[in-house]
């Protein structure tokens, strides 16, 4: 475990922890969706940083990059986590939009974005019905 590992894993896991704190402590639906987006960013960073190799170049070869296209082994980072994360980011936007539309539907039904009836001890029947 070196200093770089401490910075990257520690920073990313703290970012994910901030997202979890947001989900657990906020009752506004759109704020919860924002917290989920923060967690998604953290997980993407974690996956890419697991595939990183110190001192290697980006996985692009040939031409001006100076890496021989026929022997890429030993000179570039692992491309598989990057390919995984690339599609995950695009899917993340579509699912965020779907969740937001669901939140807008909740607002139209109840007149509020707050999840009152789901948090114990704070239920207020009159306000839930409104």
């Amino acid at each position: 475990m070196n200093g770089l590992a401490l910075v990257f894993y520690g920073g990313i896991l703290l970012l994910i922890a901030v997202g979890i704190w947001g989900i657990l402590s906020r009752r506004n639906l759109i704020k919860v969706i924002m917290a989920i987006t923060i967690i998604a960013t953290g997980v993407n960073l974690l996956l890419v940083s697991v595939g990183y190799i110190s001192g290697r170049a980006a996985p692009i070869v040939g031409g001006d990059t100076g890496i021989d296209a026929s022997s890429t082994t030993g000179s570039v980072v692992d491309p598989i986590p990057q390919a995984l994360v690339l599609t995950a980011i695009v899917i993340g936007l579509a699912t965020t939009a779907l969740a937001l539309v669901a939140a807008v539907g909740y607002y139209r039904k109840t007149g509020s974005l707050e999840l009152k009836s789901w948090s114990y001890g704070l239920t207020n029947e009159k306000e839930v019905k409104k």
């Binding site: 994910i16 979890i20 657990l24």
Partner: peptide, 21 residues
């Protein structure tokens, strides 16, 4: 709870070397 979660994951990631081939 969130910090506990992060600490648990961090303990798991101590085993994973950063920047190793």
């Amino acid at each position: 709870l969130a910090l506990l979660f992060a600490a648990t994951l961090f303990v798991a990631f101590v085993e994973v070397d950063f920047g190793e081939p």
